[in-house]
Design a binder for these strands. Structure first.
Lengths: 208, 208
DNA sequence: ATCGGATTAGAAAATTTTTTCTAATCCTGT
DNA sequence: ACAGGATTAGAAAAAATTTTCTAATCCGAT
């Protein structure tokens, strides 16, 4: 691992633990086993380090979305949630301090907003596909799906921040998934409930 | 208004606009039309200012909850949401940077966590009461209400942060209320839908 | 082996921000 | 009016943090 990468990894670790704004160059240098002067050699300033991390996050985020551009059966949704959760764990600092980061970097905000829009659209497609194949009942009022798609995005994105404030322990994957599924469950048809139960009982993880 | 109060008001204004961590004593002093030295006379340090604001927030928050310890008909829920939204607007900085504040003040975290628990319980009672009076259908799976109560709290609390990141404009009351109601709508019985429609059509605000 | 650019640590300087100090002014009670 | 504490502004000092500079070391190509 190059020094540049080591610095980024160290910064990520400190950011995740203490929050971006509370991390000093010295902390990052210590974590990386390098000197502050060396940090300066690789990055013009602290902002560049944050930006470097965000670029990595963004790349992986887009990759994730591409990978799950697949048939949104319940199984697939569940797997997508796991991948998203894992990604959010890794780049925790960003999801916990999104506003801080976007305030400091307007260009990050612009790009992230575009990404959000894509994600909300993906949720909307998931809702529509699953309604059409009869596992979810039609929306109870016009525009309901649009609102729900937003809610699904919000829940799946802000879950970590929520739980960090509410409890003291790190949130678990199962609670996360349950939180998102809870938004969908009330719309399940009888068929939907069956498929959901079946999914819960076949832990596909074992086959990987 | 005493100088102390002026300083708090000025700090609140700057915190709301720029985020707590980005506000300097100089900014607060300028906003208050006072000197930095004067700030130091009234508050031993910056932390004391933040804490002063949190104390006010907490008092009003508890007052709010007490006030709405009433029969949770749809009308009342809607009114509660308006009061909560307004309160969150006023103390925006806290709801946008909760993690930052609680990281800096462990004692705030402890108190806020207790308050959250009370709020979640209140939502649970609302769910149970409205199920018992036949406007909401029974929970589709055991433990569903518990999860939903949490979700209702999360949605009603993190809405502002969500929207600040997602869009650039300040979020509106109507969208906020809709977001929360959307969580309840799928559980409505026929009677529930009727009551909801009726509520939407009678803008009680006019009678205040 | 050695030249030369790349990398590194650590110190020094600069910058930013908070805290302390001082003297002036205000305001209240007599 | 005036004594004396409360309040205030502004400067000075201190503290915290980032940025720049310098000299030493490393490492690959010749």
């Amino acid at each position: 691992m190059s020094t540049k990468e080591k610095i980024l990894a160290a910064a990520l670790k400190r950011f995740n633990a203490d929050g971006m704004v509370n991390v000093r160059l010295q902390h990052i240098a210590d974590e990386a086993g390098k000197s502050v002067g060396n940090l300066a050699y690789h990055f013009p300033n602290k902002q560049a380090i944050v930006l470097g991390l965000y670029k990595k996050l963004e790349t992986e985020q887009i990759e994730l979305l591409r990978e799950f551009r697949i048939v949104p059966l319940f199984d697939n949704i569940d797997r997508l949630l796991e991948a998203v959760f894992q990604h959010q764990q890794i780049y925790r600092f960003f999801y916990l301090d999104t506003l801080e980061v976007t305030r400091a970097f307007p260009e990050v905000q612009a790009e992230y907003q575009k990404y959000i829009e894509t994600e909300v659209q993906q949720w909307l497609q998931i809702l529509e596909f699953n309604t059409s194949r009869g596992v979810m009942s039609p929306e109870p009022r016009p525009g309901f799906h649009t609102g729900l798609a937003l809610q699904l995005w919000a829940t799946s994105t802000h879950y970590m921040a929520q739980e960090m404030v509410r409890s003291t322990v790190l949130p678990g994957l199962e609670a996360y998934k349950a939180g998102v599924w809870n938004l969908l469950i009330p719309l399940f048809t009888k068929l939907g409930h069956q498929e959901y139960e079946q999914m819960l009982q076949s832990p596909y993880d074992l086959f990987y």
